[in-house]
Design a protein around this nucleic acid. Structure first.
Lengths: 305, 305
DNA sequence: ATGAAAGCGCTAACAG
DNA sequence: CTGTTAGCGCTTTCAT
């Protein structure tokens, strides 16, 4: 039919209030144009960036994100994954590499591309776009030691629900031991993800119980900023008396006075790479499982100079 | 059938890798258990809180959020709304009250509950859960004037794409004029939503062009924190030389030194109230359009004492 | 109670 | 190329 006829029909349809029903289309064509994405929490600038990168990369193809939050809980992740798979997504993107056995089975049976992100899984389910949290913290430890600091502490959450946070702590411990240094200055600061306030409280405990500490690595920039403010309230100079480092390259770390040393995990790039990978797989340009490492960048700033 | 048989069947189904296909269910039952939600940006702690409140309130009923980002653009919102309506959501939650005419038509024709949030629309489409951004800033102006300050500036974005930001600026201008004060100390700091960095740059311009300014109200806590750090870098005391206020009750405002005066718009409550309203409408407990005002709270902190 | 059959609104396959 | 028809996998209805 002619373009004129076509647009005339579409206009009449619009005037009549017709809206295409994709539920019928989905059933018949066995295509939903959904990509399922699970993140631990919506209220986290890093994961939000990853979702933004995914969303931008997928929307040009008309793929829509179906987002779910696990609350840092692999059982909740299992429920969520099952619920999401019922919607018949074309692909699924997960945060992290720790899953229940049933989650793994469900994902494998689903027969769709599975992408684990924000980690480098030992036993990947399918594709991977991530990095080693432990190795990233190791580089921060190396930097602090090169700067002449030895009594270094780690502030993180008090459980292993946040497995990336737990990996960062393990990376800290391993790196310290490699250098022959004491790796027992560990402060557990609350249920992950820990807040600015919890970072401040942890810093208070650290200053009181281990006052000779020379540097602190925090599991995130938010807790690092909280730790910094606690030092400021107590008149402890940063750097000088104590150096502080964070993780995640949140804007707060670039703007605070002093600015915070941190690690940039390129969260948006994780999302855009995952999106590109999904398109490659769906278009048959990628056959086997792909492992893409997005190497984090160490950012040395005023708080550890 | 017996409970034992039932669970046995379900177990076999699970072993076979069967996963319920909700696309078929959706088509036949004309129910999707989707609630569509549009927010300007995913990377905003306030909107993230609202989505969190919505999500928690809806998931007990098995309702899943279908989230979309408008990028603070009503044309993008139109495209998004049309795309979302094709999925046949049971209800739709919008951020803001400015929409294209076509968006309004689509929403009315959809025949589902429509909830506008984060504003008090003059001409609501359906339900409302929000507050007056202008009135909230007016209360901040009143507070600063009561504190004896008169030369007050406003830092915001340089366009009206962020209509809530624009309303805050209008509220500032109206309040200043009511008090017979000069309302021309306006700094436009970049494309909304403005960042910490842009807040800092705006503060720099303000200090250089209007050095006698006594107080600054920023469109958000993030830009207010940026403004604060710029003062710190220049040795301008806050408060004392300049008082600073933000908007949004982000955690940064509570933790910074000095802490930032701000307005708490109860973002999570907006989400949970919207969720409760949706359940009420779907269950027939609410018939006519409901307007719920979530009154913001003025938080006076160190930065304006 | 249980079982059979129709049908949701599209898309794909096939016939003309 | 256009027009017709079957059918996606559930839910609902109707008959037994």
């Amino acid at each position: 039919m002619s373009e004129a006829t076509r647009s005339a029909i579409l206009e009449v349809a619009d005037d009549l209030g017709y809206v295409f029903d994709s539920t019928a289309s989905n059933l018949r064509s066995q295509k939903t144009d959904f990509v399922a994405v699970t993140i631990p929490s919506i209220n986290n600038a890093n994961f939000a960036e990853t979702v933004g990168g995914l969303s931008d990369g997928l929307k040009e193809r008309g793929l829509q994100i179906l987002l779910g939050y696990t609350g840092y809980d692999i059982l909740e992740e299992e429920r969520l994954v099952e619920q999401l798979l019922r919607r018949r997504p074309e692909a699924i993107v997960l945060t992290g590499d720790r899953h229940t056995d049933r989650t793994r089975r469900l994902l494998i049976n689903a027969g769709i591309p599975v992408i684990e992100t924000w980690d480098l899984p030992v036993r990947p389910i399918g594709h991977v776009v991530g990095f080693s949290n432990a190795a990233a913290v190791r580089r921060m430890v190396d930097h602090l030691i090169r700067a002449g600091l030895a009594r270094i502490a780690f502030i993180g959450g008090d459980a292993d629900r946040d497995t990336r946070g737990a990996d960062r702590r393990l990376g800290f411990i391993a790196a310290m031991k490699e250098h022959g240094l004491d790796a027992t200055r560990l402060i557990a600061a609350g249920v992950p993800p820990i807040s600015m306030r919890e970072g401040a409280n942890a810093m208070a405990r650290l200053l009181e119980t281990m006052p000779d500490t020379q540097a602190v690595i925090c599991v995130s920039d938010l807790s690092a900023f909280g730790a910094l403010t606690e030092c400021q309230r107590r008149g402890v100079t940063v750097p000088g008396t104590v150096s502080i480092a964070g993780f995640g390259n949140h804007e707060i770390g670039a703007m605070s006075v002093p600015s915070l040393s941190t690690v940039n995990p390129f969260p948006r790039e994780i999302g855009s790479r995952a999106a590109a990978l999904i398109l490659d797989v769906l278009d048959g340009r990628q056959s086997g499982p792909a492992v893409t490492e997005v190497r984090p960048q160490l950012l040395v700033r005023e708080s550890s100079l």
